[in-house]
């Protein structure tokens, strides 16, 4: 009898350990961190051509074309972004730079070549639209995973792919969303779908990763869409000519290059 009890408690302990490790694998915060890093911090740096199509609720389309350079200064931490606009014509040659500071206010600068004007822009509102699209500044450079509380909701299937379903709620009240449900690919940790809800529980925005390719060994979302369900508009972003780990230098993300685009990377 004593032995039996001992065996039972031992096997319970083993079971508990298993359960714990299984639970650890499904730690929602760890998944969101990994997802954030694979989506926003791929490689040490990256260059891509971006084609944006903005469609309003009446189906009218507008295009934006730009080249984007990114440099990670710290994995999961500070990043620098550089954007060179090509289209439409009224913003052609304009450059835009962001020093992303995850635990503070980002620093943003714009350079308007037609009047040779360098101007810092107040960057208080990360939830404001990026170039009039349905993506916000935060969608472009990422909302840090530590700003939300994450709950693991289960493993599911999305278009035949197994996904983690994670619910995220901002730690501090945030006007961008009250709740977000993310569907994260269980193999490459890329977000395949994100549903944003307001505080009344109504879905306000919907993100979809439409096409994924492996570039330089790094799984990359090549086409993505953000739908604004409130406005009935959507924005599709297609990446092309992506290269990772090209050896971008911190010096590029300065006023000198804001005024003189690095033609080695931007033709």
């Amino acid at each position: 009898m004593k032995n039996a009890t001992r065996y039972l408690s031992a096997s319970l302990l083993v079971l508990a350990l298993f359960a714990a490790s299984a639970f650890a694998a499904y730690d929602a915060t760890a998944i969101m961190k990994k997802s954030h890093l694979s989506y926003y911090y791929a490689g040490n740096d990256g260059i891509t051509e971006v084609n944006m199509t903005l469609t309003n609720k009446r189906g009218k389309e507008r295009k934006r074309e730009f080249t984007m350079l990114r440099l990670d200064l710290k994995e999961g931490g500070k990043q620098d972004y550089y954007t060179y606009f090509r289209k439409p014509s009224d913003v052609a040659r304009l450059t835009f730079m962001v020093h992303k500071i995850p635990d503070g206010n980002d620093l943003r600068w714009i350079y308007i070549p037609s009047i040779d004007l360098v101007k810092p822009i107040s960057a208080d509102d990360k939830n404001s639209s990026f170039v009039g699209s349905d993506f916000t500044y935060e969608d472009v450079s990422g909302r840090h995973w530590t700003e939300d509380n994450h709950t693991f909701k289960g493993v599911s299937q999305l278009n035949g792919k197994p996904v983690f379903v994670i619910e995220s709620v901002p730690k501090k009240p945030y006007k961008g969303f009250a709740k977000k449900i993310s569907y994260i690919d269980t193999t490459n940790y890329l977000p395949l779908k994100e549903e944003y809800f307001n505080k009344r529980g109504k879905m306000i925005r919907l993100f979809t990763a439409n096409k994924i390719e492996t570039i330089d060994g790094i799984p990359t979302v090549m086409v993505r869409t953000m739908e604004n369900l409130k406005k009935g508009s959507k924005t599709t972003v297609a990446f092309s000519k992506i290269s990772y780990n090209v050896g971008l230098n911190k010096g590029i993300f300065t006023e000198r290059y804001l005024k003189n685009p690095p033609r080695k990377y931007i033709k």
Binding site: I121, S122, A123, D124, D125, N127, S128, S129
Partner: peptide
């Protein structure tokens, strides 16, 4: 001094 006082208002 300049500030963005709402999403699209500076």
């Amino acid at each position: 001094f300049e500030r963005q006082v709402a999403s699209d208002l500076t």
